[in-house]
Design a protein around this nucleic acid. Structure first.
Lengths: 190, 190
DNA sequence: ATGTGTGTAGACAAGTCGGTCTACTTTTAA
DNA sequence: TTAAAAGTAGACCGACTTGTCTACACACAT
């Protein structure tokens, strides 16, 4: 593992756990046992380091997300999506780390200016997630010839996903109810 | 308007627009034309001021939310909820100010420690919102004798609401699709 | 009129922030 | 072997942070 990767790994954990503004450069240095000069050799600024962390999390998260969406039938995509989320919320997905909400929603909350590179990267991530769901749905026999309906279902599933993540984060898993399979059937069949 | 209310109003706008960590005491003082001593006469710390802002937003938001949930039939509650959100996202609800996502989700993102007073207040807000939806549903003839189903529907509507708010915030209203009325019918009837 | 709020203006303390820079050491490759 | 590259440790800079405190002004009730 290169120094650069090591810094990003440490920084990502801290940023995701405590928030972007709450973690200072010095804390990252202390935690990763790296000299300040080394960090600034690899990243021009804190913002650039944050962007690298977002990129890393994007890769990490999407690979897991593609896995759980990869099911042959539309209803199975939906069910797998929500059982996967449930596992994540219960900290049973090691590669995603200790659950602390959506890193990109959290990051966007700290950088409200939509033109900021960090905000843009968060937008991009959400678009990618939608694409992953849509691709999975379009690969099913039920929906491969109905792009309009597939897109509509993808949007609904995405909305439920984001809603569940926020509730799991803010409510700390209390008062969290997953969509029933009956509901998912309605969504994927109607 | 008392000095205290004036300070909270100014602080709330700044906090909601720019984020909690991003806004300093001095910026609030400059914007509100108030002396530092005056602020610290009314609030013991920045955290306490933030809590006062959360409380103010809670009152403000809930009064609007109760209005839009106050419909005689379950399906109307659902439809009214999402048309209301759409108006909010489009900045057409003056009393809620310029849309910038859910203040409580944003705040919780900046204070990940669940024991922190700010995090607790965010949790409380979400519980209240669930109660408002549930109360509205239990007042309808379809659901007044079915508390279990009413609670299930309330949770689903809440999840969709949170998901839409996050998407509207992160994606800046791009790629945002409201639940279809057909879907809402399924949810409120099944 | 005389004290008691409550307000203003802003200096100040003590610490943190991101970021630069120097001096020195280790690793690596020609 | 030697020179360049990449690392360490940490002093330092200026700006900013929350919060305290002094000195003063005005309003109002006794």
């Amino acid at each position: 593992m290169t120094k650069q990767e090591h810094i990003v790994n440490t920084a990502l954990t801290l940023f995701y756990t405590k928030g972007l503004h709450a973690v200072g450069i010095n804390e990252i240095l202390a935690e990763s046992n790296v000299a300040k000069k080394t960090l600034y050799n690899h990243f021009a600024s804190k913002d650039e380091l944050i962007c690298a962390c977002l990129a890393k999390r994007d890769t990490q998260f999407n690979s897991w997300f593609e896995e759980i969406c990869n099911k042959p039938l539309a209803i199975e995509v939906a069910i797998s999506l929500f059982t996967g989320l449930k596992l994540w919320f219960a900290n049973q997905v090691p590669k995603l780390g200790h659950f602390n909400g959506c890193f990109f929603i959290n990051a966007a909350a700290e950088y409200p200016n939509a033109q900021h590179p960090i905000a843009k990267q968060c937008m991009q991530h959400k678009q990618t997630i939608l694409d992953i769901i849509l691709t999975a749905l379009l690969a099913t026999p039920e929906l491969k010839n109905n792009k309009v309906k597939a897109l509509e279902i993808a949007h609904t599933l995405l909305t439920l996903k984001e809603g569940l993540i926020c509730q799991a984060r803010v409510m700390r898993n209390q008062s969290l109810v997953m969509p029933s399979i009956t509901l998912l059937k309605h969504i994927t069949q109607s």
